[in-house]
């Protein structure tokens, strides 16, 4: 479980998930339209006072009272919302990281709530009284590593749009950003040369030698699943191919010629993707870390994560 090491700034909902937006950390202020509304009210009041018009007074006070009550509505629209979970799939640098926040309305219907992360557009959602809503916000990334989007700002102007209530919540969300894949013939050629030395070509030709079935293990490529059996209710089974068990290949950081380590990581990233599309098991060799050859979605993820977190201490899990 993630525990934030740095001190939480005041006015932020903190602590482990789920976290609720509390009274203390919620603020409310009139916005520009609130000021416009004040001008409107002042004009009505001045006119009524000048002509001693009680109907004018009454309407001005109705409007003023409604604006006042709307403060309470705006405030209550916000407090008590709970952030009960965060989900984020890894992305490649340059892509948008998609954070999914699981928001619980806390038993009251919420309307027109806006969710905003720094650097991203606000997302407006309604929360029903019961159930959890997934709020997806997209933040652009440009650097590999562990991307932390910072605090999530939740704000609302409901119902009248003249007051804005807001609160910030520490989400603890992190997104693994893989290096930007840098495809190059040179790197691929290096890999191919390694294959030529072994039985690479032969292995590639033997792709379709069907050798048997085994129970499905998460990470098996979908195209190797025996869907026909699944549709008959026989459970998920994976077809195995003798060709998949080719000669392992190592993708080696130190074997690349680029002087810039980031570029090397980008090339390795492209190579991992290519190798996964191929048929041979592949391993990854980084300074200080070696990942043994294997195949499949889980292995690919391990390799890419290692590339993403390369050089950031304590995060090489």
């Amino acid at each position: 479980m993630e525990t934030s090491a740095n001190a939480t700034p005041p006015g932020t909902a903190a602590g482990p998930l789920p976290r609720s937006l509390k009274n203390k950390s919620t603020y409310i202020m009139p916005n520009a339209f609130g000021l416009m509304f004040t001008v409107l009210l002042s004009a009505l009041l001045a006119g009524s006072a000048n002509y001693n018009n009680n109907l004018g007074f009454l309407m001005a006070f109705f409007l003023g009272g409604m604006a006042f009550v709307s403060i309470l509505h705006t405030h209550r629209n916000l407090i008590g919302i709970t952030l009960s979970g965060v989900q984020c799939e890894p992305v490649f640098a340059g892509e948008e990281a998609v954070f999914e926040f699981l928001m619980d309305s806390g038993g009251r219907e919420r309307r027109a709530l806006a969710f905003k992360l720094a650097g991203a557009d606000a997302v407006v959602e309604d929360l029903p009284a019961k159930g959890i809503v997934r709020v997806r916000t997209r933040v652009p990334t440009n650097q590999r590593g562990l991307f932390s989007p910072g605090r999530l700002t939740v704000f609302t102007r409901f119902p009248f749009g003249i007051f804005r209530a807001w609160s910030q919540v520490e989400t603890g969300a992190e997104c693994v950003v893989y290096p930007r894949p840098l495809d190059s013939r040179m790197a691929w050629a290096a890999l191919s040369r390694g294959e030529e030395n072994g039985a690479g070509k032969k292995a590639r030709q033997a792709v379709d030698d069907f050798s048997g079935l085994r129970a499905y293990v998460p990470g098996d490529p979908p195209r190797h699943l025996w869907w026909k059996a699944y549709s008959r209710g026989l459970g998920l089974q994976t077809k195995t191919f003798s060709g998949s068990q080719g000669e392992p290949v190592y993708l080696d950081f130190s074997a690349l010629a680029d002087p810039d380590p980031e570029k090397r990581l980008s090339r390795l990233c492209a190579m991992v993707l290519a190798a996964e599309r191929g048929t041979r098991p592949y391993g990854l060799s980084l300074p200080g870390r070696v990942i043994l050859p294997s195949r499949g979605e889980a292995h690919r993820r391990t390799c890419l994560t290692a590339l993403a977190l390369f050089g950031s201490p304590g995060k090489n899990a």
Partner: peptide
């Protein structure tokens, strides 16, 4: 909201200074 605003509106109506 109008119903909730009635107390404020009526009290202001009574108390707002008339000239």
């Amino acid at each position: 909201i109008l119903v909730q605003a009635l107390p404020v509106a009526l009290l202001l109506f009574l108390a707002f200074p008339r000239f």
